[in-house]
Design a protein around this nucleic acid. Structure first.
Lengths: 344, 344
DNA sequence: TTTTAGCACTCTCACCTTGAGAGTGCTAAT
DNA sequence: ATTAGCACTCTCAAGGTGAGAGTGCTAAAA
């Protein structure tokens, strides 16, 4: 496959830009007119034929304009698009919104999903940050009724996990508090492995509690164990490629089915560093369900402490520039917030 | 409007049943054949004409079969349907699932949404229970960094709320624990009003904390302050009435836009007791957005303590029998769980 | 060698017509 | 009160048609 000439690259970029906007096949004459190109339609046609040959364009039928192929989009994203950034005032507005909701991780996530959806005009998803290496911070035991006890476990980073547990025999609140105090001193700042390795003698209640705590800490380290925030689902439906419900359903399923999403996120992002953005165009051969969709995904958080994932989902004909810059920016913002959360 | 004869009521019921299944207008002849009716097609036509006159049926065009009107569905739900219940083994299966996920309110909600969606083959929503009268149970203060303090507030019922706060000046963990201990003794079991009315002398830190606690307790009493769980959105898209994306978008918007949903739930359910089920057919003239949808909603929980809402959303041509029985049953189940949560 | 004008060709899409089919309402007979 | 018979209405799928957009090719021009 020969190298592309500069004009061919320009034409490819323009066709993609035009097609993203109009969702209509792009013809040689309209392209030349719209962008006041120096070359004549016939020249453009020759270049289009070359680009089709190279696999970057295709024709829906013999006599329609050209449409980008998935390879075309990939080339565009990698080589033609350049580094696009959100306008400074947009950034400022978003930042402002985050600082205005105050210190509330739950609302950060909701806001992040909302911002992503609105800016990229696509469906968005944000997973809550999960600690990569959960560390004990504080334990609280509250007696409720009979042998029922509410255990509140605070992790380093301020994550709070609660669990109800039923003891073998009734225990007074005083005994519970004493046990909690003891464990708080003993386990402070420890990771589950370190806790398991402890040799300090413990009574029966404390042993049970330690077992539960280790379990919870381990559980907290799983990606997607917690919540997934979604927004902008209606944007997906307003895209013409999802006008028939069958394709729209396939797209929504990706966001709705947890195991699917989990697989997708882990496999895509395990190799991605915080700060990097992954672009999945048309399933990339791996994900059948994504065949008609593209996703722009990123990882955010404090590496080694707590990370989460976020991204947008739209048709293959997606405004990649806008999506990528939005995802990158929001990921950066959330990273800052998470880092702040964990620095102590 | 004359009373309906017994046969007319039968015909209306059969037409609705048939239409719900096939989504096609129902004609006199096919109806007679399908259900082996004694009357001839001509007789059925006469009754159909009467039902159309009465406002329960209409014809999409001069020469198509009949389709139920919204009034027709209402009559059906109120007068014809009778009390339908889920099969005993379905109930058992569902109950089993709930007890299998263990003591985890978050997973209860997710499971409830999933069960509703699957059983009713519609989109479902579940709001987390909110305490009607929030009462203080336990406070925990954890120093993190400098003047940053994590406040963990446990409400009666086991609800846990966390908040980060920044103090005017640094305070040691010992001082924090002392303040927490003091407040725990002082405020145990109190509602926000009772706390505000207290005259016990407090130091500055404690005064600040009490103010925050009252605020949080008040906040906890708001409906929908917390999470909304959704599931089965793809079911909506598989209904033929939502095959064009425009109408599907309207339906999804109802579930996605929080203020809309909040208004809908509060206004519909404020008059509904726990145990009752509300059926909204085609917006009922009040909600423009719901014009092409129906909802089956219920309130669940422990009256006076904590309640939440749940329901399903589907096309007007909804299997009301199945939806209502499912919603009623799941609401009952969640109510039991919430009652258990609060009985102490 | 590259670019361009000219032109025949292809394919879609919107539009129209048409006939079969389903269902109705009316009338008159049972 | 019910029903058979019948003319009538309306939709919908199928087939035909022409305008329009866009192409590739060829040969001339730069």
């Amino acid at each position: 496959m020969a190298e592309l000439t500069e004009r061919q690259r320009l034409i490819l970029a323009l066709i993609i830009r035009e097609y993203i906007e109009t969702a209509q096949p792009v013809g040689s004459e309209s392209l030349q007119k719209r962008y006041q190109l120096d070359a004549s339609p016939a020249t453009i046609r020759n270049d289009m034929a070359a680009l089709t040959e190279a696999g970057y364009l295709r024709q829906p039928h013999t006599s329609a304009g050209r449409v980008p192929t998935e390879e075309g989009y990939r080339y565009f994203v990698r080589q033609l698009m350049g580094h696009i950034d959100l306008p400074a005032d947009t950034k400022r507005t978003i930042t402002h919104q985050f600082y205005q909701v105050g210190y509330d991780p739950d609302r950060w996530m909701r806001l992040a999903a909302s911002v992503l959806a609105q800016q990229a005009k696509a469906a968005s998803l944000v997973t809550a940050p999960h600690v990569e290496q959960a560390r004990f911070k504080h334990l609280e035991l509250i007696s409720t009724r009979g042998r029922q006890v509410l255990m509140v476990l605070v992790l380093a980073g301020g994550d709070v996990r609660q669990q109800m547990l039923t003891l073998a025999e009734p225990v007074t609140q005083e005994q519970l508090s004493a046990a909690a105090n003891h464990l708080n001193q003993l386990l402070s700042g420890l990771a589950p492995e370190a806790i398991s390795a402890l040799t300090t003698p413990l009574d029966v209640l404390e042993q049970d509690l330690v077992r539960l705590i280790v379990e919870e800490l381990r559980h907290a380290s799983q990606l997607l164990g917690s919540e997934v925030y979604r927004d902008g689902l209606t944007h997906v439906l307003s895209q013409p490629e999802f006008s028939e419900s069958e394709s729209a359903r396939k797209a929504l399923r990706i966001l709705e089915e947890r195991p699917l999403l989990e697989d997708l996120l882990t496999r895509t992002l395990e190799t991605t560093n915080v700060g990097g953005v992954q672009v999945l165009i048309g399933g990339e051969g791996t994900w059948e369900e994504l065949r008609d969709c593209s996703m722009v995904l990123a990882r955010y958080g404090a590496p080694g402490l707590a990370t989460g994932a976020l991204g947008v989902l739209g048709p293959i004909r997606m405004a990649y520039g806008r999506s990528i810059s939005t995802v990158r920016f929001v990921a950066g913002l959330l990273s800052d917030l998470v880092v702040e959360l964990h620095s102590e």
